[in-house]
Simulated scan of single mutants.
Amino acid sequence: MKVKIITVGKLKEKYLKEGIAEYSKRLSRFTKLELIELPDEKTPDNASEAEKIAIMAKEAERILAKISEREYVMALAIEGQQFPSETFSQTLANATLSGYSTLTFIIGGSLGLAPEVKKRAHQLVSFGKLTLPHQLMRLVLIEQIYRAFMIQQGSPYHK
């Protein structure tokens, strides 16, 4: 199985890049990892609702262009399902058993994800009601993917 993480916006902070690189290295023993970073749209400070919808639509177009029909898609959204790490691990395992060769995660831009991206997803996932910077969420997500693989291996890492 291959894991793909599609994100909107450029990762800037060195400490986050280093953390993501570390977990990418750890994940390489379980799966091929592809990180896709898409440009975000500039959002004016006082953007109207119509401007926000247009911005999300442009970002959605870029995101959807990176997803094929054969991918199991999990989009991160505040209204998504929350579950413990063990259930997250089982969800990843089940996607593989269902015949999907690529498991794709999507982290949207600062305005979130357009409805068409959420509709394409097989599952909406939330890591809680806290608001985290999108760049930090990348590190949290990749660590949780690594944790899911370690759980599947019966590793004490999860303890």
Rank of each mutant, 00 (worst) to 15 (best):
A21W: 11
G112N: 08
L132S: 02
L35W: 12
K52L: 13
K4G: 06
E51W: 07
Y157R: 08
Q81M: 12
G99A: 11
R147C: 07
K118Y: 05
T7Q: 06
L139R: 05
E71K: 00
F149W: 13
I20N: 07
R29V: 12
K25R: 15
G80K: 00
K159C: 09
Y72A: 04
L16C: 04
E34H: 10
P133L: 13
Y15E: 10
L103I: 15
L35T: 02
F149V: 13
K10D: 07
Q135S: 13
E79S: 06
Q153G: 06
R29M: 05
G99R: 13
E41I: 03
T7K: 03
A93P: 04
I78N: 04
L35V: 06
E79Y: 01
E13L: 13
R147D: 11
I55S: 00
E116M: 10
L33W: 08
T31P: 04
K2Q: 15
R29F: 03
E143Q: 09
E143M: 04
H122K: 11
S155H: 15
G112C: 09
A114Y: 02
E71I: 01
L92F: 09
V8M: 05
A60N: 00
L27R: 12
K2L: 12
K4M: 08
E49W: 13
I107H: 02
P84V: 03
F88C: 05
A50T: 14
K159H: 15
F83K: 14
Q152G: 15
E18C: 08
L124S: 01
A50W: 13
A148T: 10
L136W: 11
S98P: 00
I151L: 10
G9A: 04
Q82E: 14
K4L: 11
M56C: 09
E71L: 01
Y72G: 00
Y100M: 08
A95N: 08
L35K: 11
E41D: 09
E22S: 10
E69I: 03
K159W: 10
M74C: 14
L136T: 10
